[in-house]
Design a protein around this nucleic acid. Structure first.
Lengths: 254, 254
DNA sequence: CAGTGGTCTAGACCACTGC
DNA sequence: CAGTGGTCTAGACCACTGT
Protein backbone atom coordinates (compact mmCIF):
# COMPACT_ATOMS: atom_id res chain seq x y z
CA UNK A 1 0.00 0.00 0.00
CA UNK A 2 1.43 3.38 -0.94
CA UNK A 3 2.09 5.47 2.14
CA UNK A 4 0.77 8.76 0.82
CA UNK A 5 -1.92 7.41 -1.46
CA UNK A 6 -4.60 9.86 -2.50
CA UNK A 7 -7.16 7.34 -1.29
CA UNK A 8 -10.07 8.69 -3.23
CA UNK A 9 -11.94 5.66 -1.97
CA UNK A 10 -14.96 6.41 -4.04
CA UNK A 11 -16.58 3.12 -4.80
CA UNK A 12 -18.68 3.30 -7.92
CA UNK A 13 -21.64 1.01 -8.29
CA UNK A 14 -21.21 0.44 -11.98
CA UNK A 15 -24.79 1.46 -12.74
CA UNK A 16 -25.40 3.97 -15.49
CA UNK A 17 -23.15 6.67 -16.90
CA UNK A 18 -19.79 7.17 -15.26
CA UNK A 19 -20.37 10.81 -14.37
CA UNK A 20 -23.59 9.80 -12.62
CA UNK A 21 -21.79 7.10 -10.66
CA UNK A 22 -19.21 9.62 -9.53
CA UNK A 23 -21.88 12.14 -8.62
CA UNK A 24 -23.80 9.55 -6.61
CA UNK A 25 -20.70 8.31 -4.83
CA UNK A 26 -19.77 11.81 -3.70
CA UNK A 27 -23.37 12.67 -2.79
CA UNK A 28 -23.51 9.52 -0.66
CA UNK A 29 -20.37 10.56 1.25
CA UNK A 30 -21.94 13.94 1.95
CA UNK A 31 -25.36 12.63 2.91
CA UNK A 32 -23.85 10.01 5.20
CA UNK A 33 -21.92 12.84 6.79
CA UNK A 34 -18.72 10.93 6.11
CA UNK A 35 -17.60 14.20 4.52
CA UNK A 36 -18.94 16.97 6.76
CA UNK A 37 -19.62 20.56 5.66
CA UNK A 38 -16.38 22.36 4.91
CA UNK A 39 -14.53 19.18 3.94
CA UNK A 40 -12.38 19.64 0.87
CA UNK A 41 -13.26 17.21 -1.86
CA UNK A 42 -10.26 15.95 -3.86
CA UNK A 43 -9.37 18.10 -6.84
CA UNK A 44 -10.78 17.25 -10.20
CA UNK A 45 -7.38 16.17 -11.39
CA UNK A 46 -6.89 13.88 -8.39
CA UNK A 47 -10.28 12.26 -8.82
CA UNK A 48 -9.72 11.87 -12.55
CA UNK A 49 -6.39 10.17 -11.95
CA UNK A 50 -7.71 8.02 -9.08
CA UNK A 51 -10.74 6.88 -11.06
CA UNK A 52 -8.79 6.57 -14.29
CA UNK A 53 -11.10 8.81 -16.20
CA UNK A 54 -10.87 12.22 -17.80
CA UNK A 55 -11.20 15.49 -15.95
CA UNK A 56 -14.28 16.46 -18.01
CA UNK A 57 -16.18 13.49 -16.62
CA UNK A 58 -15.29 14.37 -13.04
CA UNK A 59 -16.10 18.01 -13.75
CA UNK A 60 -19.55 17.04 -14.91
CA UNK A 61 -20.22 15.19 -11.65
CA UNK A 62 -18.94 18.01 -9.47
CA UNK A 63 -20.76 20.67 -11.46
CA UNK A 64 -24.04 18.81 -10.99
CA UNK A 65 -23.42 18.58 -7.24
CA UNK A 66 -22.69 22.29 -7.15
CA UNK A 67 -25.93 22.99 -9.02
CA UNK A 68 -27.77 20.88 -6.43
CA UNK A 69 -26.18 22.91 -3.67
CA UNK A 70 -24.32 20.03 -2.03
CA UNK A 71 -20.95 21.36 -3.05
CA UNK A 72 -19.37 24.79 -3.31
CA UNK A 73 -16.56 25.28 -5.81
CA UNK A 74 -13.92 27.94 -5.63
CA UNK A 75 -11.16 28.47 -8.14
CA UNK A 76 -7.69 27.92 -6.87
CA UNK A 77 -9.08 26.66 -3.55
CA UNK A 78 -10.98 23.54 -4.52
CA UNK A 79 -14.42 21.99 -4.05
CA UNK A 80 -15.96 21.86 -0.59
CA UNK A 81 -18.97 20.23 1.01
CA UNK A 82 -21.60 22.93 1.44
CA UNK A 83 -23.19 23.70 4.77
CA UNK A 84 -26.72 22.48 5.36
CA UNK A 85 -28.83 25.44 4.46
CA UNK A 86 -32.47 25.46 3.60
CA UNK A 87 -34.83 22.64 2.79
CA UNK A 88 -36.54 22.88 -0.53
CA UNK A 89 -40.08 21.75 -1.11
CA UNK A 90 -40.58 21.60 -4.85
CA UNK A 91 -44.34 21.65 -5.24
CA UNK A 92 -46.05 20.84 -8.48
CA UNK A 93 -49.24 22.76 -9.05
CA UNK A 94 -51.46 21.11 -11.61
CA UNK A 95 -54.30 22.67 -13.50
CA UNK A 96 -57.71 22.05 -11.88
CA UNK A 97 -58.56 19.72 -14.74
CA UNK A 98 -55.55 17.50 -14.16
CA UNK A 99 -55.80 17.66 -10.44
CA UNK A 100 -59.40 16.51 -10.40
CA UNK A 101 -58.63 13.83 -12.95
CA UNK A 102 -55.87 12.53 -10.71
CA UNK A 103 -58.41 12.19 -7.92
CA UNK A 104 -60.33 9.91 -10.24
CA UNK A 105 -63.25 12.32 -10.49
CA UNK A 106 -64.76 14.19 -13.39
CA UNK A 107 -64.09 17.88 -13.72
CA UNK A 108 -66.49 20.63 -14.64
CA UNK A 109 -66.56 24.32 -13.94
CA UNK A 110 -68.99 27.22 -14.02
CA UNK A 111 -68.04 30.67 -15.14
CA UNK A 112 -69.76 32.70 -12.44
CA UNK A 113 -68.66 36.16 -13.41
CA UNK A 114 -66.97 37.83 -16.31
CA UNK A 115 -66.52 41.54 -16.64
CA UNK A 116 -64.09 44.08 -17.92
CA UNK A 117 -62.92 46.88 -15.75
CA UNK A 118 -60.07 49.27 -15.17
CA UNK A 119 -57.19 48.55 -12.90
CA UNK A 120 -58.02 49.70 -9.39
CA UNK A 121 -54.88 50.34 -7.33
CA UNK A 122 -56.87 50.00 -4.10
CA UNK A 123 -58.20 46.53 -4.81
CA UNK A 124 -55.50 45.20 -7.11
CA UNK A 125 -52.55 46.97 -5.57
CA UNK A 126 -50.46 43.87 -5.00
CA UNK A 127 -51.30 42.25 -8.31
CA UNK A 128 -48.67 44.23 -10.18
CA UNK A 129 -50.71 45.55 -13.06
CA UNK A 130 -50.02 48.96 -14.54
CA UNK A 131 -52.05 52.04 -13.83
CA UNK A 132 -54.87 52.60 -16.31
CA UNK A 133 -54.75 49.04 -17.60
CA UNK A 134 -57.90 47.30 -18.82
CA UNK A 135 -58.48 44.02 -17.01
CA UNK A 136 -60.72 41.05 -17.53
CA UNK A 137 -62.06 39.76 -14.23
CA UNK A 138 -63.14 36.13 -14.20
CA UNK A 139 -64.57 34.01 -11.40
CA UNK A 140 -64.87 30.28 -11.88
CA UNK A 141 -66.05 27.54 -9.60
CA UNK A 142 -64.45 24.18 -10.31
CA UNK A 143 -66.09 20.93 -9.25
CA UNK A 144 -64.60 17.54 -8.48
CA UNK A 145 -67.42 15.16 -9.27
CA UNK A 146 -70.41 16.91 -7.73
CA UNK A 147 -68.51 18.69 -4.95
CA UNK A 148 -67.24 22.25 -5.18
CA UNK A 149 -63.48 21.98 -5.24
CA UNK A 150 -61.88 25.29 -6.02
CA UNK A 151 -62.85 28.91 -6.43
CA UNK A 152 -60.76 30.69 -9.06
CA UNK A 153 -60.66 34.47 -9.02
CA UNK A 154 -58.59 35.78 -11.90
CA UNK A 155 -57.52 39.02 -13.48
CA UNK A 156 -56.18 39.00 -17.02
CA UNK A 157 -54.40 41.99 -18.51
CA UNK A 158 -56.08 42.99 -21.75
CA UNK A 159 -53.03 45.03 -22.60
CA UNK A 160 -50.81 41.96 -22.52
CA UNK A 161 -53.47 39.54 -23.81
CA UNK A 162 -55.98 41.43 -25.98
CA UNK A 163 -57.27 38.19 -27.55
CA UNK A 164 -58.68 37.19 -24.16
CA UNK A 165 -61.55 39.66 -24.65
CA UNK A 166 -62.97 37.43 -27.42
CA UNK A 167 -62.59 34.02 -25.79
CA UNK A 168 -65.57 32.09 -24.49
CA UNK A 169 -64.34 31.19 -21.03
CA UNK A 170 -67.52 29.34 -20.18
CA UNK A 171 -66.41 26.62 -22.58
CA UNK A 172 -62.71 26.57 -21.83
CA UNK A 173 -61.20 27.22 -18.43
CA UNK A 174 -59.16 30.41 -18.27
CA UNK A 175 -56.10 28.65 -16.88
CA UNK A 176 -55.79 26.11 -19.65
CA UNK A 177 -56.49 28.66 -22.37
CA UNK A 178 -53.88 31.04 -21.03
CA UNK A 179 -51.31 28.30 -20.59
CA UNK A 180 -51.68 27.31 -24.21
CA UNK A 181 -51.93 30.70 -25.86
CA UNK A 182 -49.97 33.15 -23.79
CA UNK A 183 -46.22 33.14 -23.36
CA UNK A 184 -44.86 33.78 -19.91
CA UNK A 185 -41.56 34.30 -18.38
CA UNK A 186 -41.84 34.23 -14.67
CA UNK A 187 -44.34 33.24 -12.02
CA UNK A 188 -44.63 33.83 -8.32
CA UNK A 189 -46.71 31.87 -5.85
CA UNK A 190 -47.92 32.86 -2.45
CA UNK A 191 -49.51 30.19 -0.28
CA UNK A 192 -51.48 31.13 2.81
CA UNK A 193 -54.26 29.92 5.06
CA UNK A 194 -57.30 32.16 5.12
CA UNK A 195 -60.78 32.10 6.60
CA UNK A 196 -63.58 31.76 4.07
CA UNK A 197 -65.57 34.96 3.70
CA UNK A 198 -69.30 34.68 3.16
CA UNK A 199 -69.41 34.54 -0.66
CA UNK A 200 -66.48 32.13 -0.77
CA UNK A 201 -68.08 29.90 1.83
CA UNK A 202 -71.35 29.91 -0.06
CA UNK A 203 -69.64 29.00 -3.33
CA UNK A 204 -67.57 26.22 -1.83
CA UNK A 205 -70.45 24.96 0.37
CA UNK A 206 -68.50 25.32 3.59
CA UNK A 207 -69.06 27.31 6.76
CA UNK A 208 -68.10 30.98 6.79
CA UNK A 209 -64.77 31.33 8.56
CA UNK A 210 -63.71 27.78 7.72
CA UNK A 211 -59.99 27.47 6.93
CA UNK A 212 -59.06 27.55 3.26
CA UNK A 213 -55.81 27.12 1.43
CA UNK A 214 -55.15 30.09 -0.80
CA UNK A 215 -52.69 29.94 -3.68
CA UNK A 216 -52.03 33.24 -5.38
CA UNK A 217 -50.08 33.25 -8.58
CA UNK A 218 -48.81 36.18 -10.60
CA UNK A 219 -47.46 35.57 -14.07
CA UNK A 220 -45.26 37.92 -16.03
CA UNK A 221 -43.92 38.15 -19.53
CA UNK A 222 -40.98 40.05 -20.94
CA UNK A 223 -37.88 41.46 -19.39
CA UNK A 224 -37.38 44.87 -17.93
CA UNK A 225 -38.29 47.44 -19.09
CA UNK A 226 -41.11 45.74 -21.00
CA UNK A 227 -41.96 43.27 -18.27
CA UNK A 228 -45.69 43.20 -17.63
CA UNK A 229 -48.08 41.17 -15.51
CA UNK A 230 -50.06 38.84 -17.72
CA UNK A 231 -52.46 37.40 -15.19
CA UNK A 232 -52.99 37.18 -11.46
CA UNK A 233 -55.11 34.45 -9.95
CA UNK A 234 -56.23 33.43 -6.50
CA UNK A 235 -57.18 29.80 -6.04
CA UNK A 236 -59.15 29.07 -2.88
CA UNK A 237 -59.54 25.47 -1.73
CA UNK A 238 -61.52 24.21 1.24
CA UNK A 239 -58.83 23.43 3.80
CA UNK A 240 -60.09 19.94 4.38
CA UNK A 241 -59.99 19.04 0.70
CA UNK A 242 -56.59 20.21 -0.41
CA UNK A 243 -53.06 19.11 0.33
CA UNK A 244 -49.96 20.30 -1.41
CA UNK A 245 -47.34 17.59 -1.48
CA UNK A 246 -43.69 17.83 -2.40
CA UNK A 247 -40.88 15.33 -2.20
CA UNK A 248 -37.20 16.13 -2.11
CA UNK A 249 -33.96 14.21 -2.29
CA UNK A 250 -30.80 16.20 -1.75
CA UNK A 251 -28.54 15.83 -4.74
CA UNK A 252 -31.13 13.83 -6.58
CA UNK A 253 -29.82 10.73 -4.86
CA UNK A 254 -31.86 7.62 -5.50
CA UNK B 1 -28.29 33.97 -49.52
CA UNK B 2 -28.22 30.19 -49.81
CA UNK B 3 -31.56 28.86 -51.04
CA UNK B 4 -31.87 25.95 -48.59
CA UNK B 5 -30.04 27.44 -45.65
CA UNK B 6 -30.55 25.75 -42.33
CA UNK B 7 -31.48 29.15 -40.89
CA UNK B 8 -30.79 28.33 -37.31
CA UNK B 9 -31.37 32.02 -36.69
CA UNK B 10 -30.35 31.76 -33.09
CA UNK B 11 -28.96 35.10 -32.15
CA UNK B 12 -26.60 34.84 -29.24
CA UNK B 13 -26.20 37.79 -26.94
CA UNK B 14 -22.51 37.30 -26.34
CA UNK B 15 -22.92 37.31 -22.57
CA UNK B 16 -21.30 34.55 -20.57
CA UNK B 17 -20.37 31.01 -21.58
CA UNK B 18 -21.28 29.89 -25.07
CA UNK B 19 -23.39 26.93 -23.93
CA UNK B 20 -25.41 29.30 -21.73
CA UNK B 21 -25.96 31.68 -24.62
CA UNK B 22 -27.21 28.83 -26.77
CA UNK B 23 -29.46 27.58 -23.98
CA UNK B 24 -30.94 31.02 -23.44
CA UNK B 25 -31.46 31.63 -27.14
CA UNK B 26 -33.41 28.39 -27.51
CA UNK B 27 -35.34 28.95 -24.26
CA UNK B 28 -36.34 32.39 -25.51
CA UNK B 29 -37.72 30.91 -28.74
CA UNK B 30 -39.79 28.46 -26.72
CA UNK B 31 -41.03 30.95 -24.16
CA UNK B 32 -41.99 33.45 -26.85
CA UNK B 33 -43.91 30.63 -28.47
CA UNK B 34 -41.95 31.21 -31.64
CA UNK B 35 -41.28 27.51 -31.43
CA UNK B 36 -44.52 25.89 -30.24
CA UNK B 37 -44.81 22.55 -28.42
CA UNK B 38 -43.95 19.71 -30.76
CA UNK B 39 -41.64 21.82 -32.92
CA UNK B 40 -38.47 19.98 -33.85
CA UNK B 41 -35.38 21.83 -32.78
CA UNK B 42 -32.46 21.57 -35.25
CA UNK B 43 -30.20 18.59 -34.65
CA UNK B 44 -27.14 19.00 -32.52
CA UNK B 45 -24.94 18.65 -35.56
CA UNK B 46 -26.89 21.31 -37.45
CA UNK B 47 -26.72 23.76 -34.58
CA UNK B 48 -23.04 23.05 -34.06
CA UNK B 49 -22.32 23.72 -37.71
CA UNK B 50 -24.56 26.78 -37.87
CA UNK B 51 -23.06 28.31 -34.75
CA UNK B 52 -19.54 27.21 -35.65
CA UNK B 53 -19.01 25.41 -32.39
CA UNK B 54 -18.58 21.81 -31.32
CA UNK B 55 -21.39 19.36 -30.78
CA UNK B 56 -20.46 18.97 -27.09
CA UNK B 57 -21.24 22.61 -26.47
CA UNK B 58 -24.61 22.38 -28.17
CA UNK B 59 -25.29 19.13 -26.35
CA UNK B 60 -24.69 20.84 -23.05
CA UNK B 61 -27.26 23.52 -23.86
CA UNK B 62 -29.88 21.06 -25.03
CA UNK B 63 -29.29 18.71 -22.10
CA UNK B 64 -29.88 21.56 -19.68
CA UNK B 65 -33.11 22.47 -21.45
CA UNK B 66 -34.22 18.86 -21.27
CA UNK B 67 -33.44 18.80 -17.54
CA UNK B 68 -35.57 21.92 -17.14
CA UNK B 69 -38.40 20.23 -18.98
CA UNK B 70 -38.59 22.68 -21.86
CA UNK B 71 -37.31 20.15 -24.34
CA UNK B 72 -37.82 16.44 -24.93
CA UNK B 73 -35.05 14.53 -26.64
CA UNK B 74 -35.47 11.28 -28.51
CA UNK B 75 -32.70 9.35 -30.17
CA UNK B 76 -32.91 9.05 -33.90
CA UNK B 77 -35.89 11.44 -33.90
CA UNK B 78 -34.44 14.67 -32.59
CA UNK B 79 -35.15 17.27 -29.92
CA UNK B 80 -38.63 18.71 -29.59
CA UNK B 81 -40.26 21.53 -27.69
CA UNK B 82 -42.10 19.98 -24.75
CA UNK B 83 -45.76 20.59 -24.12
CA UNK B 84 -46.73 22.91 -21.33
CA UNK B 85 -47.33 20.63 -18.40
CA UNK B 86 -47.37 21.55 -14.76
CA UNK B 87 -46.24 24.69 -13.03
CA UNK B 88 -43.62 24.23 -10.38
CA UNK B 89 -43.48 26.29 -7.24
CA UNK B 90 -40.09 25.69 -5.68
CA UNK B 91 -40.60 26.74 -2.08
CA UNK B 92 -37.74 27.23 0.29
CA UNK B 93 -38.55 26.34 3.87
CA UNK B 94 -36.12 27.94 6.30
CA UNK B 95 -35.52 26.96 9.87
CA UNK B 96 -37.56 29.00 12.35
CA UNK B 97 -34.35 30.72 13.45
CA UNK B 98 -33.52 31.93 9.97
CA UNK B 99 -37.05 32.76 9.09
CA UNK B 100 -37.51 34.99 12.12
CA UNK B 101 -34.13 36.57 11.53
CA UNK B 102 -35.16 37.41 8.00
CA UNK B 103 -38.19 39.21 9.40
CA UNK B 104 -35.74 41.36 11.33
CA UNK B 105 -36.93 40.03 14.68
CA UNK B 106 -35.19 38.09 17.39
CA UNK B 107 -35.93 34.41 17.79
CA UNK B 108 -36.50 32.45 20.95
CA UNK B 109 -38.35 29.27 21.67
CA UNK B 110 -39.75 27.35 24.63
CA UNK B 111 -39.62 23.62 24.94
CA UNK B 112 -43.14 22.98 26.19
CA UNK B 113 -43.13 19.21 26.29
CA UNK B 114 -40.62 16.45 26.03
CA UNK B 115 -41.42 12.82 26.59
CA UNK B 116 -40.51 9.39 25.35
CA UNK B 117 -43.17 6.98 24.28
CA UNK B 118 -43.84 4.04 22.04
CA UNK B 119 -45.06 4.33 18.51
CA UNK B 120 -48.83 4.40 18.48
CA UNK B 121 -50.25 3.33 15.12
CA UNK B 122 -53.55 5.05 15.89
CA UNK B 123 -52.05 8.48 16.51
CA UNK B 124 -48.93 8.29 14.40
CA UNK B 125 -50.27 6.12 11.62
CA UNK B 126 -49.32 8.42 8.80
CA UNK B 127 -45.92 9.35 10.20
CA UNK B 128 -44.26 6.25 8.80
CA UNK B 129 -42.50 4.97 11.89
CA UNK B 130 -42.08 1.27 12.51
CA UNK B 131 -44.19 -0.71 14.89
CA UNK B 132 -42.71 -0.95 18.40
CA UNK B 133 -40.34 1.95 17.82
CA UNK B 134 -39.36 4.27 20.69
CA UNK B 135 -40.08 7.88 19.90
CA UNK B 136 -39.14 11.19 21.41
CA UNK B 137 -42.06 13.59 21.34
CA UNK B 138 -41.16 17.28 21.44
CA UNK B 139 -43.38 20.34 21.41
CA UNK B 140 -41.79 23.76 20.93
CA UNK B 141 -43.26 27.20 20.66
CA UNK B 142 -41.18 29.59 18.60
CA UNK B 143 -41.48 33.35 18.99
CA UNK B 144 -40.76 36.16 16.57
CA UNK B 145 -39.90 39.05 18.82
CA UNK B 146 -42.53 38.78 21.53
CA UNK B 147 -45.23 37.23 19.37
CA UNK B 148 -45.90 33.51 19.12
CA UNK B 149 -44.92 32.52 15.63
CA UNK B 150 -44.92 28.79 15.18
CA UNK B 151 -45.92 25.69 17.07
CA UNK B 152 -43.61 22.76 16.38
CA UNK B 153 -44.85 19.27 17.17
CA UNK B 154 -42.16 16.72 16.45
CA UNK B 155 -41.52 13.01 16.72
CA UNK B 156 -37.95 11.75 16.57
CA UNK B 157 -37.14 8.09 16.10
CA UNK B 158 -34.85 6.91 18.89
CA UNK B 159 -34.05 3.85 16.82
CA UNK B 160 -32.63 5.99 14.02
CA UNK B 161 -31.27 8.74 16.29
CA UNK B 162 -30.43 7.28 19.72
CA UNK B 163 -28.24 10.27 20.62
CA UNK B 164 -31.34 12.46 20.64
CA UNK B 165 -32.31 11.01 24.02
CA UNK B 166 -29.38 12.81 25.64
CA UNK B 167 -29.68 16.22 23.97
CA UNK B 168 -30.92 19.26 25.86
CA UNK B 169 -33.55 20.53 23.47
CA UNK B 170 -34.43 23.44 25.68
CA UNK B 171 -31.11 25.01 24.75
CA UNK B 172 -30.96 24.06 21.10
CA UNK B 173 -33.96 23.80 18.81
CA UNK B 174 -34.69 20.26 17.65
CA UNK B 175 -34.73 21.24 14.00
CA UNK B 176 -31.29 22.79 13.94
CA UNK B 177 -29.76 20.02 16.05
CA UNK B 178 -31.18 17.34 13.78
CA UNK B 179 -30.12 19.14 10.63
CA UNK B 180 -26.56 19.29 11.85
CA UNK B 181 -26.19 15.85 13.39
CA UNK B 182 -28.45 13.50 11.54
CA UNK B 183 -28.01 12.44 7.94
CA UNK B 184 -31.09 12.26 5.77
CA UNK B 185 -31.93 11.11 2.39
CA UNK B 186 -35.37 12.17 1.49
CA UNK B 187 -38.06 14.49 2.75
CA UNK B 188 -41.73 14.92 2.03
CA UNK B 189 -43.83 17.97 2.73
CA UNK B 190 -47.57 18.29 3.06
CA UNK B 191 -49.05 21.75 3.22
CA UNK B 192 -52.65 22.27 4.34
CA UNK B 193 -54.95 24.81 5.91
CA UNK B 194 -56.39 23.75 9.25
CA UNK B 195 -58.50 25.28 11.97
CA UNK B 196 -56.68 25.87 15.23
CA UNK B 197 -57.81 23.51 17.96
CA UNK B 198 -58.03 24.81 21.50
CA UNK B 199 -54.50 24.05 22.73
CA UNK B 200 -52.97 25.28 19.48
CA UNK B 201 -55.01 28.46 19.62
CA UNK B 202 -53.99 29.04 23.21
CA UNK B 203 -50.31 28.53 22.40
CA UNK B 204 -50.35 30.79 19.37
CA UNK B 205 -52.58 33.39 21.04
CA UNK B 206 -55.24 33.23 18.36
CA UNK B 207 -58.92 32.35 18.38
CA UNK B 208 -59.92 28.71 18.39
CA UNK B 209 -60.94 27.74 14.88
CA UNK B 210 -58.80 30.43 13.29
CA UNK B 211 -57.15 29.34 10.05
CA UNK B 212 -53.59 28.08 10.33
CA UNK B 213 -51.05 27.00 7.77
CA UNK B 214 -49.79 23.52 8.56
CA UNK B 215 -46.56 22.18 7.13
CA UNK B 216 -45.90 18.53 7.81
CA UNK B 217 -42.52 17.13 6.99
CA UNK B 218 -41.32 13.54 7.14
CA UNK B 219 -37.63 12.84 6.80
CA UNK B 220 -36.07 9.51 5.94
CA UNK B 221 -32.64 8.04 5.85
CA UNK B 222 -31.28 5.04 4.03
CA UNK B 223 -32.46 3.13 1.00
CA UNK B 224 -34.81 0.22 0.92
CA UNK B 225 -34.77 -2.16 2.69
CA UNK B 226 -33.09 -0.18 5.49
CA UNK B 227 -35.01 3.03 4.85
CA UNK B 228 -36.40 4.43 8.08
CA UNK B 229 -38.24 7.56 9.16
CA UNK B 230 -35.88 9.79 11.11
CA UNK B 231 -38.29 12.49 12.21
CA UNK B 232 -41.76 13.76 11.49
CA UNK B 233 -42.76 17.29 12.33
CA UNK B 234 -45.86 19.42 12.08
CA UNK B 235 -45.32 23.16 11.94
CA UNK B 236 -48.44 25.21 12.63
CA UNK B 237 -48.42 28.92 11.76
CA UNK B 238 -51.19 31.43 12.37
CA UNK B 239 -52.71 31.91 8.93
CA UNK B 240 -52.41 35.65 9.08
CA UNK B 241 -48.71 35.53 9.89
CA UNK B 242 -47.30 33.11 7.38
CA UNK B 243 -46.87 33.19 3.66
CA UNK B 244 -44.95 30.69 1.60
CA UNK B 245 -43.47 32.35 -1.44
CA UNK B 246 -41.91 30.73 -4.46
CA UNK B 247 -40.66 32.19 -7.71
CA UNK B 248 -40.18 30.30 -10.93
CA UNK B 249 -38.69 31.00 -14.31
CA UNK B 250 -39.10 28.29 -16.90
CA UNK B 251 -35.72 27.23 -18.15
CA UNK B 252 -33.96 29.46 -15.69
CA UNK B 253 -34.30 32.27 -18.19
CA UNK B 254 -33.25 35.68 -16.92
C1' DC C 1 1.92 33.94 -9.88
C1' DA C 2 0.83 29.35 -9.51
C1' DG C 3 -3.03 26.32 -9.29
C1' DT C 4 -7.73 25.60 -9.37
C1' DG C 5 -12.11 25.24 -11.73
C1' DG C 6 -14.72 26.77 -16.24
C1' DT C 7 -14.99 26.16 -20.72
C1' DC C 8 -14.23 24.48 -25.23
C1' DT C 9 -12.65 21.32 -29.06
C1' DA C 10 -12.48 17.63 -32.50
C1' DG C 11 -12.72 13.69 -32.50
C1' DA C 12 -14.71 8.70 -31.06
C1' DC C 13 -17.78 4.82 -29.91
C1' DC C 14 -22.11 3.19 -28.44
C1' DA C 15 -27.25 2.59 -27.37
C1' DC C 16 -31.32 3.20 -28.79
C1' DT C 17 -35.05 3.80 -32.07
C1' DG C 18 -37.65 5.14 -35.98
C1' DC C 19 -37.97 3.95 -40.59
C1' DC D 1 -30.05 -0.27 -40.36
C1' DA D 2 -29.04 4.38 -40.59
C1' DG D 3 -29.17 8.47 -37.81
C1' DT D 4 -29.91 10.57 -33.58
C1' DG D 5 -28.58 11.69 -28.92
C1' DG D 6 -25.50 10.02 -24.77
C1' DT D 7 -21.23 9.61 -23.31
C1' DC D 8 -16.36 9.84 -23.03
C1' DT D 9 -11.48 11.36 -24.08
C1' DA D 10 -7.12 13.87 -24.09
C1' DG D 11 -5.91 17.52 -24.80
C1' DA D 12 -6.11 23.10 -24.59
C1' DC D 13 -6.62 27.91 -23.04
C1' DC D 14 -8.52 31.09 -19.91
C1' DA D 15 -10.48 33.50 -15.63
C1' DC D 16 -10.22 33.91 -11.32
C1' DT D 17 -8.21 33.80 -6.73
C1' DG D 18 -5.51 32.47 -2.84
C1' DT D 19 -0.98 32.86 -1.22
Amino acid sequence: MPDTAAHAELDLDGAGPLHEQIRRAIAAKIINQHWRPGHRIPFESELAAGLKTSRMTVNRALSALAADGLVVRRRKAGSFVAGQSAIHAPLTILSPEREVARMGLSHRFDLRSRRMRDFDPDTDGTAGFARGEKLLHLVCLHHAGDEPFLLEDRLVSLTAVPQAAEVDFSARSPGSWLLEHVPWNEAEHEITAIAADTPTARALAIDPGAPCLSIQRRTWHGDTPTRATVTAVRLTYPGAAKKLVGRFRPGGLG
